[in-house]
Design a protein around this nucleic acid. Sequence first.
RNA 1: UCCGGGGUCGUCCAAUGGCAGGACAACGGCCUUUGGAGCCGUCGAUCCUGGUUCGAGUCCAGGCCCCGGAGCCA
Length: 584
Amino acid sequence: MKDQPTDFIREIIRQDLESGRFDHVHTRFPPEPNAYLHIGHAKAIWINYSIAQEFGGLFNLRFDDTNPMTEEAEYVDAIIEDVRWLGVDWGDRLFFGSDYFEQTYQWAVELIKKGKAYVCDLSPEELIETRGTPTRPGIESPYRNRSVEENLELFERMRAGEFPDGARTLRAKIDMASPNILMRDPVMYRIRHASHHRQGNKWCIYPMYDFAHPLQDSIEGITHSLCSLEYENHRPLYDWFLDQLGIYHPRQIEFARSSITHMVMSKRRFIELVGGGYVSGMDDPRLPTLAGLRRRGYTPEAIREFCSRIGVAGKSKVESTVQIALLEDCVRDDLNKTASRVMAVLDPLKVVITNYRSHDNEEPASKLSPGESTPSHTQDGVEYLDAVNNPEDPSAGTRKVPFSREIYIERDDFREDPPPKFYRLAPGREVRLRYAYFIRCNEVVKDADGNIIELRCTYDPATRGGDAPDGRKVKATIHWVSAPHSIEAEVRLYDHLFSKPDPDDVPPGGSYIDNLNPQSLVTKTCRIEPSVIGAAPGTRYQFERLGYFCVDPDSTPERLVFNRTVTLRDTWAKIEKGMKEGSK
RNA sequence: UCCGGGGUCGUCCAAUGGCAGGACAACGGCCUUUGGAGCCGUCGAUCCUGGUUCGAGUCCAGGCCCCGGAGCCA
């Protein structure tokens, strides 16, 4: 294990273990099954899970499904898939808060018997009115002092379905003058005649989060209930229910949420973006949903690494905004070590190698290197060159790449009038074709409008493989594909969904929608070496010098579709940008 | 306005009264058959004002600023 991470939560847990408050560690991730998980959830999952792991403890996956109006089984499946994909193991501890409804009900009855809860007939509007404000205390409900017997009877009748939605609630009897508004006799149960995704029509009263959550944690023997900062104000209530009931009492600790620049991170906005047609769905590769990131080509390792690197806000428990560059660095770092390299040309420019032809009868067999079983130049003017699959990982091996008289190179890799520091191909200049030969550009062919449509070059047969026997150097190595052997594929070039780091940075009256990046998806047809034929969706590659790409599920046997996960660092782009800004 | 939480490099996170450190970004260099990767270096911060202390980012007081809170959501 690397350096033991430390943060205020782990510190508190260490102290709890030392003091004997707890003798083990047991955490949980409690999503409500009402939305797709996003990378913010990944942080919560990872904090809970990694802490359990480090302390040799247990981790539960629990669905907090106490509101039948918003929850659906579809989300349960999607969430399970996402959490599993992240690489988190909950063993056999997959639970549902709704499975505890009977116990929850019994505890509510117990609180009624203790005079700590009462049935209230106030309407939702009246409840709001009597709750007071931050500066003004609330006023007590006229039903606050009903007898235990009456409360018991009413609560039973609520369960029996005798009252319509909203007619009554069960409330905790705490303090209507508390400066913490959550303590002003909060609602514990509400009436909802609705079908529950798991319980069906068994219940028509449902516990509120504040009542249900501490009970769920208690039932499962959770030691440390790690949740996000917005629950800080809820902690006194969490503790109150547990104390009144006198049951096993986990400790709630809050951590800061993180957002990421150039992204939005809420269910509501995901729905707006999908509904407005700005993205294709909840798994659009531009969305920070786990499903979207997965489709984009992100690895679970990269996301876990990101969660570790952003850490847990310690004493500075303030919501942080992490730069997207950090996320991108994490995925590059992982993919660099694992992704197979392949050559693809996004914006093809044809190059004819005028002195390359069938070497049939021209090339004596004696020129073949020892052990080589086939001629390096075949009758149809094709030869197969060795290319390394991953320079970071020798065990990834090599492959053969076809080379011929007509190839494509990247249009960006040629300049008729090269600026300073541009090392690639230009008239009269020599570059290396990766794993192939040195070529020199002799002629630029243009169409009637003056557009460059073809380059005519010569190659140096002595440089086969990429080294010149005479020791001469070239300043650039460019990628290429053989024109007749390469295949066509669709590439979806993704960029940040929002142009500004903060999507909410808009003039008064504006909307984050205004900050949508019109270039967040650019679709192109590229040419790619034939080794990728048959690649399964989800397969990740590095397109040399361009970036990391992942096969999309939209692919068909006839036509592959690739998503660009992230570009490579592009030093030349930076230089070019610097020159442009310098000349302004 | 009341309650709760909080302000450390551009960003995220450390420093548990004792040399303010790391990562990402930026910048410069080395290296390179990916202008990739790697390696080396540079830049760069304790919100303000007092106080306690041999010594304060850390403790105390006052101020300023930011976040959360008035769902029968979670």
